[in-house]
Simulated assay, not measured.
Amino acid sequence: MAAFNLTPSDPSTFILMGIPGLEAAHIWISIPFATFYIIGLLENVMLLYVVSKEQTLHKPMYLLLCMLALTDIATSTTITPKTLCIFWFNLKSISVGGCLTQTFFLPTVSVMHSAVLVTMAFDRYVAICNPLRYTTLLTNGRIAKLGLLCLIKAVLFILPMPLLLNRLPFCSNHVIPHTFCVPIAVAQMSCGDITLHRTYRLVIMFVVSVLDLSLIALSYGLIIRAVLRISSKEAHQKALKTCTAHICVMLTYYTPGLFVNLTHQFGQGIAPHIHIILANLYLLIPPMLNPIIYGVKSKELRDKLGKYTYKM
Score class of each variant (00 low, 15 high):
Gly18Ala: 06
Leu156Gly: 06
Gln265Ala: 13
Leu63Gln: 10
Ile224Ala: 09
Val96Cys: 12
Val208Asp: 14
Pro8Gly: 03
Pro160Trp: 07
Met312Glu: 05
Ser298Val: 07
Arg124Met: 01
Leu16Tyr: 03
Glu300Lys: 11
Thr263Lys: 04
Phe105Trp: 15
Ile73Phe: 05
Ile216Arg: 07
Leu42Val: 12
Glu54Asn: 02
Leu156Phe: 14
Phe89Val: 02
Ser93Ile: 00
Thr255Ser: 08
Pro183Asn: 03
Thr80Leu: 14
Ile31Tyr: 02
Ala2Arg: 05
Arg201Leu: 12
Ser190Met: 02
Ile224Val: 08
Trp88Leu: 12
Ile86Asn: 06
Thr135Met: 10
Ile184Phe: 05
Cys191Pro: 00
Arg229Gln: 12
Arg201Trp: 13
Thr252Met: 10
Ser110Thr: 13
Thr71Glu: 04
Val50Met: 02
Ile29Gln: 01
Leu146Trp: 13
Thr135Glu: 14
His264Asn: 10
Thr108Trp: 05
Ala271Gly: 00
Pro11Trp: 01
Leu57Tyr: 03
Leu70Trp: 04
His264Gly: 04
Val207Lys: 04
Val296Ser: 00
Tyr200Gln: 05
Leu168Lys: 08
Val208Pro: 11
Lys297Phe: 11
Leu283His: 10
Leu213Trp: 02
Leu222Gly: 00
Asp212Ile: 10
Met161Ser: 14
Val175Cys: 09
Thr7Lys: 03
Ile276Leu: 05
Asn166Leu: 15
Gly18Cys: 08
Met112Ser: 09
Leu132Ser: 15
Leu138Gly: 09
Met46Thr: 12
Gly141Ala: 06
Pro160Asp: 03
Leu278Gln: 11
Thr78Val: 06
Phe180Trp: 13
Pro20Lys: 10
Gln102Val: 11
Ser298Lys: 05
